[in-house]
Design a protein around this nucleic acid. Structure first.
Lengths: 122, 122
DNA sequence: TTTATATATGAACAATTGTTCATATGTTAT
DNA sequence: ATAACATATGAACAATTGTTCATATATAAA
């Protein structure tokens, strides 16, 4: 990047492992991909959304079901479902007045499980 | 516009799939586990921390290296490393004045990869 | 000791985020 | 048509969060 004169603007250190930094810089994915990845995990990073995803891995549910299950307002659930929808983690189908949500990605469970494995390791 | 009798407090719907809700309720992990899981993904849900984790999967680096690589302040990186440390995602070793950080969990890469798989689909 | 350097951390601030409230939209029944 | 109901959504608010700034701590060298 800007490691030109042995000194870098944003870092007030003199000692830098130049080769390491350059090596890793060459290995880093594009900023855009890392941004998208962080955005994805941000979606998983809320208790309400985690609960919704967890519930939907068990069964297709309507908004009202989820609100009842989690003892939360319909509005709150609906707002969160929108975020999950935008992240393509859930899909929906409308049947009359009722909208049913379900998991839209087989990897949701796997991401879940990896997280649980980490937590259960200690 | 609120009915007040004989309904679930948090949900203003009349139509609930009672069996579904009860079935899923029986399958849900403990709230505490879901909270911890959300907290874990929250750590992954920041661009700076994702970049740090990504960098450390390639090589052990000191704080200054990371700051230089990401063109960010030492303070900012140090703050984020503390969060990663608390989540047991990175470990460190001190060598004189320099503190070297590295990945502390083999599953970090797998969580990463599952996220990337989701993003690269569709 | 004093100085320099690498890292850590508390406080303040701006930016983001989740919930609530009120209301809008879409569908079914009357 | 109107009413009832399931869901969606904009605005406001409080709570959380990431960065900056200033400073503290830890280690090494002079």
């Amino acid at each position: 990047m800007n490691a030109k004169n042995g000194r870098i603007a944003s870092c007030d250190c003199n000692l830098i492992h130049k080769e390491t930094v350059e090596y890793v810089a060459g290995k880093m994915p594009a900023d855009e991909n890392l941004y998208d990845l962080a955005e994805l995990f941000k979606v998983f990073g809320d208790t309400t959304r985690i609960k919704i995803l967890c519930a939907l891995t068990e069964a297709e549910m309507c908004v009202c079901d989820i609100a009842a299950l989690l003892n939360m307002s319909q509005s709150s659930i609906s707002h969160q479902l929108r975020i999950l929808k935008q992240a393509r983690l859930v899909r929906y189908r409308r049947d009359g007045k009722v909208v049913y949500y379900s998991i839209d990605d087989e990897h949701v469970k796997q991401i879940f499980d990896q997280g649980l494995i980490h937590l259960n390791e200690k």
